[in-house]
Amino acid sequence: MTRYPPEGQPPDIIIRVVCRSLVPFIQLFGLYVVVHGHSSPGGGFQGGVTLAASFVLLALAEGRGALRRHIPLGALNAFASAGVLLYAGLGVVCLALGANYLDYGPLPFAEPRSVGMLVIEIGVGITVMAAMLSIFRDMLEF
């Protein structure tokens, strides 16, 4: 079975250029989706997957070493943890403020529930992005 790109050769120049120029737009869109889940379809999960897709595209454009060069291994796991910790930690903050777990009511903001949701959507986004990339990388490099 033929492989693309052939062993030892960089990918085709057209694919490389197109992919590289698409990446920032995809990342921008991913971020938009994460923070705009309140009023339009989307949210942390979809945005996180989109962000992960941009890195996957980068890996396709620059060959298999790209991911390893751009993101250190430990950082990926740390990111995955950071996202869930942000989520679970917000719940603990709510607990500490005297409310039930994940009850955003007493958070010190003008619209506490909205802000609380934004925080956890960002947490979800970080975790999903890191987890998807981690799975992708582990499988690619096995």
Partner: peptide, 25 residues
Amino acid sequence: VENMVTAVLADYRGFDTLGEVTVIF
């Protein structure tokens, strides 16, 4: 929040979503 799905996902049933993120993790 205007998006009811987000409202349910992140607030009313926020703990489910914590579970969901835990599953991905």
